[in-house]
């Protein structure tokens, strides 16, 4: 396994700390003119998502984390696991609830997702930035009301609830930004 010295630290570097894979969020070089240098970092635990501060003595080395982001296609969910396939190797993987977290709200059949693998196992799932979904249930549309800027909740098949403009009808297809969970536009 490769090791990284503190002089190689930068945002996005994946390292092992206390047995868990972490991603460096930020790194600050700290040094008095005549004295010991340090690397003061903020690191995200990739299993729990928690961000903590961690200071290293300059010259320390840290084990790299075998973490890889892979583009995979969502196949189906059996209620307990979400199944993905690598479209190049056709290799299939099952991600559990912890790894999928809130991403399940945006998982549609055949959607291309980014699956973060740690030692070959899914650690996290990132849905596509934009998805198109059909509205399962919402209050009746106010025809012609395109100007007032009001919104109402709309329920998707996946269980997601998105605020949509008042003129949107049940059964319509809409485009959603999964990073903010916000309505983008109607899909014709």
């Amino acid at each position: 396994m490769a090791n990284y010295g503190t002089n190689e630290f930068k945002g996005g570097l994946k390292i092992m700390l206390d047995g868990d894979p972490h991603s460096i969020v930020s790194n600050e070089f700290v040094k008095p003119g005549k004295g010991q240098a340090f690397a003061r970092t903020r690191v995200r635990n990739l299993k729990t998502g928690r961000v903590v501060e961690r200071t290293f003595k300059s010259g320390e080395s840290v084990e790299s984390a075998d973490v890889m982001d892979t583009a995979m296609q969502f196949l189906y969910s059996d209620g307990e696991y979400w199944h993905f396939m690598n479209p190049e190797t056709f290799e299939q993987l099952a991600a559990d609830k912890t790894a999928v977290a809130d991403a399940y709200l945006w998982l549609m059949d055949e959607a291309m997702c980014e699956v973060t693998l740690y030692n070959g196992q899914p650690l996290a799932v990132t849905p596509p930035n934009f998805v198109e979904m059909t509205i399962k249930e919402t209050d009746p549309g106010l025809r012609g009301d395109t100007a007032t800027g009001g919104t109402k909740p709309a329920h998707m098949e996946s269980g997601a609830v998105v605020k949509v403009p008042l003129f949107i009808e049940e059964g319509e297809k809409i485009k959603i930004d999964t990073r903010s969970g916000e309505y983008v536009s109607r899909v014709k």
Binding site: V30, G35, T55
Partner: peptide
């Protein structure tokens, strides 16, 4: 609740440097 690098080991001046900072 501040992070203290274990690699400082017995280096008192290094510990003082970080403490001051």
């Amino acid at each position: 609740s501040r992070s203290f690098p274990s690699a400082i080991a017995t280096d008192l001046d290094a510990a003082l440097d970080l403490f001051m900072d």
